[in-house]
Amino acid sequence: MKNKNMIFIASGLLSISHLCYAELLWSPKPKTPPITHKIHQTNHRIKEKIFYLNDNTHAHVKFITPSLNIKIVNAQKDSNKYILPKTGMDNYHALLAERKTDNTYESSLRYVSMRDKPSGYSPRKLIKKNKLPLEIVPEPMIREHWHFYTSNNHNYKVLFKGKPLADTWVTLNTSNGSNLDAKTDIDGMVSFILPEDFKNIQPGRRANQPEEFILRTVHISHGITYKTNFSAPYSVNPSHWNSNIGGILSLSIGFLSGIIIMRKHNRASRRAS
């Protein structure tokens, strides 16, 4: 594969930091692989949003609201568990972790949709806002309440200090075990089709727990290695249990029924007059 060398370089760069820390990475579950599968049940209570940082040694965590208010979040005692505070706003919030050492700058970003009062701000404000020196920006981020689905193509932009970073490798790994990579174009854009890598697909979105995908990139500037990742959940494409043919068939039956109803109605009203 033509990209092999680059993956090698990228993973080499990633491993530099592994000398001291594990990767800075957000996850909705206590440990990334293995992920336990649990059937999702109806929410009877509003649950707290909880995330885990792979290794939070010397990490700084910020939670940014749609209005760009920054809240510092601390881990629960002696753990890598973070309970996200209520901000009184709905829509996407940014959850950021950063760690600086002499020659590295690591960061991890994800967007968390909160349920609360309407925020009154466009998510664009938060998503377009430069939050990290090296940042992977979803272009666009799926709208709130939408899902990243397998087989769908999504674009991302890599920015370094607010400027597009061209010719840079970005890797995509999924918790289902897929690995992809691609290089950014001149505008810093890169796109990935989320792989169809779910096994034992059950009919219905709720029957299949979402998995995680992680985009990573690395950039070296002035002797500092910048590393960042963007993670989000993705789900099985509903086309596995949705049938277009069925839809067209049912629409046609509806259409014909309408014609029959109207013919009857017209006949009856002609008789009446």
């Binding site: 219905g204 049938s243 839809g247 067209i248 629409l251 509806g254």
Partner: peptide
């Protein structure tokens, strides 16, 4: 424009919608 076969209720609702 689909019929959702993932459960009986979704099936009924999606057939009703397209109909």
């Amino acid at each position: 424009l689909v019929v959702d076969t993932s459960s009986m209720s979704y099936l009924i609702l999606s057939v009703l919608a397209t109909f």
